[in-house]
């Protein structure tokens, strides 16, 4: 299969050339050694535009091997455009097995969700990140944000969260909710819902983050402390729904609200399609 795809497409295994892979691999080792710190890398032009997961794709391309089983999700779903295309891309340029099952995957590339099925030791998650700098909306200058990280000066972010409380009575940030990694670096968890933030803490899996346009990558090693920022009198909390999933009946998963007709009828279903299917099969 692999040999066939080489001769047919004339691409190197996993698309990237070996020099680029080595550059990414050295950067990844530094990222793992400094949890939450953004390592610059030379982002390459990929066969799809920035904003479609080029950072995640480059990370996946630099770590994937013939024995890997790849799962790709987009907002929890295995069958949406971004996920289908990235999965097909890697099937073509590597010949690796792909799956939609979280448990069966060794490598999971994700756009903005962490699967509901708990990750296990040995798995690697690759997140597609649009803006790796958690402070960017508060400070436009990269020179300045580098200094803020160097001095661990994160008052700006606390003020932002406090202004949320002053204005709305609660912290209104519901996705891309800032986290402190290993009690040192303020990091963006990528635009995952804050519902998924607790899964970052002491995760048994290695978590890698890649931003192609911004040319940054960072990592959260397994079993690393990850705290969502909060205040003593306004502790961190995740979204809850009164409804259960309309398809599988789960009360524990992250739900999407779907409008079903022009009259405004709606239903709530699991965002994680693999988890929803497992729950349905478990009941049948």
């Amino acid at each position: 299969m692999t040999e066939a795809c080489h001769s047919q497409w004339q691409y190197n295994f996993a698309f990237l050339d070996e020099n680029t892979k080595r550059m990414l691999r050295r950067a990844l080792l530094k990222a793992v050694a400094i949890p939450g710190y953004q390592v610059p890398f030379g982002s390459r032009e990929m066969p799809l535009p920035y904003g479609w997961g080029t950072g995640g794709i480059q990370l996946t391309a630099s770590i994937i091997g013939q024995d890997d089983v790849l799962k790709v999700i987009d907002q929890g779903a295995d069958d949406t455009t971004n996920a289908v295309n990235i999965r097909r891309f890697f099937a073509r340029v590597t010949g690796v097995a792909t799956t939609s099952s979280t448990a069966a995957a060794s490598l999971i590339q994700s756009r903005h969700r962490i699967p509901e099925t708990p990750l296990r030791s040995g798995q690697i998650m690759v997140f597609q990140v649009p803006e790796p700098e958690a402070l960017r909306t508060l400070e436009a200058s990269e020179v300045e944000t580098r200094k803020l990280h160097a001095h661990q000066e994160y008052g700006l972010m606390h003020v932002k969260l406090y202004e949320d409380i002053a204005r709305f009575g609660h912290i209104a940030t519901s996705y891309d909710y800032p986290v402190m990694v290993n009690q040192r670096y303020l990091s963006s968890p990528s635009p995952i819902p804050k519902f998924d933030n607790p899964k970052l803490h002491m995760s048994p899996a290695l978590l890698l983050f890649g931003a192609g346009r911004e040319k940054r990558l960072y990592a959260i090693p397994p079993h690393t402390r990850v705290e969502s920022l909060a205040f003593d009198d306004h502790p961190f909390s995740v979204q809850r729904w009164e409804q259960a999933c309309a398809l599988c009946g789960s009360h524990d998963s992250y739900l999407d609200e779907i409008i079903t007709d022009d009259a405004g009828a709606r239903m709530f279903v699991c965002s994680d399609t693999d988890y929803c299917q497992q729950q349905q099969e478990g009941k049948a």
Partner: peptide, 20 residues
């Protein structure tokens, strides 16, 4: 096989750094 073997060695190294 430089491509596949380097990948295997790198994954082992990445795992070794992730779980020191």
């Amino acid at each position: 096989n430089m491509v596949q073997d380097c990948q295997q060695v790198f994954r082992c190294t990445l795992a070794a750094m992730a779980e020191p």
